[in-house]
Amino acid sequence: MLLTADDLAALWLTLKLAATVTVLLFALGTPLAWWLARSRSRWAHPVAAIVALPLVLPPTVLGFYLLVAFGPHGPVGGITQALGLGLLAFTFPGLVLASMLYSLPFVVQPLRHAFEAIGERPLEVAATLRAGPLDRFFTVVLPLARRGFVTAGVLGFAHTVGEFGVVLMIGGNIPRSTRVLSVQIYDHVEALEYAQAHALAGGLLLFSFVVLLAVYAGQPQRRSF
């Protein structure tokens, strides 16, 4: 067996983390992307810039500030302690929260573009056919933005699987709690266990390629009537 029990635990933890983050990001990112796509508010640009920050910041910067915020004297730490939840740093929930921030642009941006591509007209048509706002969202926006949701989900999931810097800063390296695949590979390399590192790294490489292939092959063709 090429994978050790620790490897499998890291793999399982990674999948759990990526799935949790993707689901939560859909819930948070859909209304955010909708607002960014349609708002004429002067806050739209600053918010869009903040959402995109993780694309350009070194993960260590994000991780560092999250660590401070999660800490006993940070704003988030204060809240979680007041709620009796303890501190988030070096826990799975802390990892989820950090990963959500880190992967946010990978979910929000495809959704935003998909919503923008739909335009006003189909929504106006639906409104004159007596569809209310929620009805319009579920019967017109969702089906027309289907490709955008697939892209957002795949990218959000894959990007969470691949994160390293933020995880190391915020999660530490606790087996079965915060030690994910990318950290496990790092550990193998540190220990000169190249065969183990190859098994995991090669697997991730293949996974990432397949995911990107799926995204590009499934690009929507622009159609409008």
Binding site: E124, A126, A127, T128, L129, R130, D135, T139, L144
Partner: peptide, 29 residues
């Protein structure tokens, strides 16, 4: 709001729902 008005609107461009068949478009209304 428009969805509370008993109005039918035909736009300059036909603006059919691309994700629905002709039947689906008719049923929507």
């Amino acid at each position: 709001p428009p969805h509370r008005r008993a109005v039918g609107y035909v736009f300059q461009e036909p603006s059919l729902f691309a994700h629905l068949s002709v039947q689906g478009n008719l049923d929507y209304g």
